[in-house]
Every structure is written in structure tokens, then in C-alpha cells.
């Protein structure tokens, strides 16, 4: 999961490493983001018919991404 987050935010690698080591809330946030991403992927692969559900997950994914950015930028 750490790798996926670093791939998403390559400019913050050091900060991500620090937070992964020291901040369980940040790990949970990344874990939720990862889970959300996999939910979207699963539904797209399965050609899920409920577009509203995919939209809901995509909105959630954006919110979580913003939250991650907020944490990453908070001490830099």
C-alpha cells in the first residue's frame, strides 16, 4: 500500500515514509483510499451496471485523496 501511495504522490515520498511509520491515522486514511480504489476497479472489471454506486465510490476516492494531500502538506 505504501508503494501505491508513493506512486500517487511521488513528491512526498519521505513524508509518506515518516507518516507510515508514525501515524496510524494516516495509515488508516491510505488504507481507506486503497480500499476505495479497489472497489472502483472491481466494479469496472465486472462491468457493474450500477453507475450510481461507481460514481459514489469515485466521489469518495476524490475526498480521500484530498484528505491525504492535506495531511501531506500539513508539515511541509
Amino acid at each position: 500500500m505504501r508503494l501505491k501511495i508513493v506512486q500517487q504522490f511521488p513528491d512526498f515520498e519521505e513524508r509518506i515514509d515518516f507518516l507510515f511509520q508514525n501515524d496510524e491515522n494516516f495509515r488508516d486514511l491510505c488504507s481507506d483510499y486503497d480500499l476505495c480504489t479497489s472497489m472502483i476497479l472491481q466494479r469496472k472489471i465486472a462491468e457493474h451496471k450500477n453507475k450510481a454506486e461507481i460514481n459514489e465510490y469515485e466521489t469518495l476516492q476524490l475526498i480521500l485523496k484530498e484528505d491525504i494531500i492535506k495531511v501531506l502538506q500539513s508539515q511541509t
Binding site: 488504507s31 481507506d32 454506486e53 465510490y57 480521500l64 484528505d67
Partner: peptide, 17 residues
């Protein structure tokens, strides 16, 4: 198969903090 409650629960926990 649907993790939406777990994801919102995490958000709620963080927002309360």
C-alpha cells in the same frame, strides 16, 4: 462486497478528531 460503510466510518472518525 461493499466497503462503503467502513470507508465512511474512517472518515467519520477522522472528522470527529
Amino acid at each position: 462486497t461493499d466497503a462503503v460503510v467502513r470507508i465512511h466510518a474512517g472518515r467519520l472518525r477522522r472528522l470527529l478528531n
